[in-house]
Amino acid sequence: MKQGLRTFFLRHETILLLILVAEWCYFNSVGRHFGSLDNSFDIVRHSVEIGLLAVVMTPIILTGGIDLSVGSLLGLCAIVFGKLWRDAGWSVGSAAMGTVVLGALAGGLNATLITWLRLPPLIVTLGTYSLFRGVAEAVTQGVDTFTNFPASFLFIGQERWLGIPAQAPFFLLVAGVVWLLVHRTTWGRSWRAIGFSPEGARYAGIPVGRRLATVYVMAGIVAALAAIIYTARLGQAKADAGSGYELFAITAVVLGGTSIFGGTGSVHGTLLGVAAIAVLNNGLVHARQPREVGGMLTGLLLILTMAASVLPKMLAKARPTGHATGRNTQSQTNA
């Protein structure tokens, strides 16, 4: 039992949960209104878009891939949504459908290049990162902004529904679906398998190409959904929407304990990661600390949580084996 307790405390999610609790307690004692329900809902509303991207980034990173293009795609989708609604005269509903289709196609482009040509995801999505943002800027010439959306549409970004922020159900739905896929289906297991070893997965009979393609298409669809929610929350769509969101999303996923090399990780870890960052950034405003500190602390947090989950293992391994052989086993497991 003692062993069980120890592994529990060494688990990434636990460390993160403790950090979250510590953050909460600290900000609660410093900021008078931090603990209020209004503020908690604010935190939720402000982190839905990044949360969506982070959740859907989790299976990608589980397969050992990465998607740098989600932030740019969010911008492109926001523009296309605005264009379909305002210039093409579509209703909000059909414009949203059209945007989701575009998201799926854009994700499909990433997927094709990555699976069919077997190109490294980092490079492919670095290219589409520029491409998607560039097309968004070119289409609007940077100037065009879409506003004056109907109130019924703005509702999902700004109002409450049954007492909770109206965008929360969308987020819960996506998070729930992705969680089930990752943790309760053979798909999730094959994503992990691919993350551990794509060749091994192939020999085990997993259709690696198709499984990989799904995660990128899924990311495209969810990025489109995030774009719609973003537009509803701000009441406007512009070509610079979502700049830099990919880094926030990746940070949250990694902070949540998913290995950047693939194979291990969890969706609930990612949710904790999103929460830790969101609470930190919100809390610092209540604690009246400069915003730059938030960025620095996020960076430090990232290194500390990773080090915290790696160090004990390294120490544990170094101790029993002692001298020469100790280093061998260690580097073999890490290779």
């Binding site: 880094l247 990746i250 940070t251 990694v254 730059e292 500190v293 938030g294 960025g295 620095m296 996020t298 960076g299 430090l300 990232l302 290194i303």
Partner: peptide, 10 residues
């Protein structure tokens, strides 16, 4: 990624 953010914000 972490050091990038930390140095820049600092």
């Amino acid at each position: 990624l972490a050091t990038m953010v930390t140095w820049r914000e600092g």
